[in-house]
């Protein structure tokens, strides 16, 4: 097969071939050069921050970011993780990591549970006020938390939920992005499935648990990844709602780090940079390892 095609090829394009092949090669090199430049642009800043954690604070203060390996990396990372710091000496990197995980996982799971139930109700039930519920829910797509940040804060304060995980997580769930996504997905599930389930005598609860949830597994995973990263990376809301240092997340902790940079004493550069690296590890790992689900979820949920 291969031989056949090459012989016919050489017959027809014997003269043109060497020239064209060369041109393809050059444009190939340009393609790779552009992509490598792009990859370096994305990678190098983080690599430099990572390598700089290998040096002492005075060294970093004097010489800035580094691209060589230093001896103090372990020390800086262990300080970042376990040394108590902050105004009240109440917070370690470990504690912030735990808070970030609670926020990321709690937000993702809460949002998925609530959205999946709501989407199921909207798609599979004959509701008199289905259209109304639909609009009540989907209006929330229009206004991100940032534009109503102050009144939301006020609401949380009146409910006495500042400095609680509930106050941190629940207001972030009050948006319909995932509901919209699950609705689209459930609409694409074949009609016959529900009919068959009904004929077999399965009730709505059984149908949901035994058929729809397993069917949506991939979708749930994709949404989980996106929501986890979204929750983990929250900044403005945690900044407002958590004033107690023991409630800080890693990303919220960055604000504290930056505030100290302007101080008179030598800032703890090594430890701060290590914390920045720790703050990016979990979401980056999830996105890289589950990138197929992640890309699918991202490109399909936003449609």
């Amino acid at each position: 097969m291969a031989e056949l095609s090459t012989t016919s090829d050489t017959l027809t394009t014997a003269k043109a071939q060497p020239v064209r092949r060369k041109r393809i090669k050059i444009s190939n090199i340009v393609d790779h050069a552009v992509l490598i430049a792009g990859a370096v642009l994305m990678l190098l800043p983080v690599v430099m921050v990572f390598l700089t954690t290998g040096f002492e604070d005075t060294d970093i203060l004097r010489n800035g970011l580094r691209i060589d390996v230093g001896p103090h990396m372990g020390e800086n990372f262990s300080n970042a993780m376990f040394e108590r710091s902050g105004f009240t000496e109440a917070i370690t990197g470990m504690r912030m990591l735990t808070n970030s995980l609670i926020l990321g996982v709690g937000f993702a799971l809460g949002k998925i549970a609530i959205s999946l139930l709501a989407a199921y109700a909207i798609v599979y039930f004959r509701l008199r006020f289905a259209t109304l519920a639909f609009w009540i829910i989907f209006t929330t797509l229009l206004l991100p938390l940032e534009v109503r940040i102050l009144p939301s804060y006020e609401a949380i304060q009146r409910l006495g939920m500042t400095n609680t995980y509930g106050g941190l997580i629940i207001p972030l769930i009050a948006s319909a992005t995932a509901t919209f996504f699950f609705r689209q997905f459930l609409m694409s599930v074949p009609e016959e499935l529900a009919e068959a389930a009904r004929i077999d005598g399965a009730g709505p609860v059984k149908f949901f648990i035994d058929i729809l949830v397993p069917l949506s597994r991939t979708m749930i995973a994709a949404i989980f990844i996106i929501m986890f990263v979204f929750g983990w990376n929250q900044y403005l809301w945690p900044t407002m709602i958590t004033t107690e240092e023991s409630m800080f997340t890693l990303v919220r902790g960055i604000k504290q780090i930056v505030a100290v940079l302007e101080g008179g004493t030598i800032p703890e550069y090594g430890k701060s940079l290590a914390l920045a690296i720790i703050a990016m590890i979990p979401p980056v790992l999830i996105v890289v390892f589950f990138q197929n689900w992640f890309v699918k979820g991202l490109t399909e949920s936003d449609k």
């Binding site: 139930l117 109700a121 599979y124 319909a176």
Partner: peptide
């Protein structure tokens, strides 16, 4: 909505309740 929808009255309301109250 699906043609082959279920006809329960209270179940969908219960399903929607968490989302609606948070919103």
């Amino acid at each position: 909505m699906k043609r082959a929808g279920f006809t329960n009255v209270w179940l969908p309301i219960a399903l929607l309740l968490p989302q609606l109250s948070i919103i």
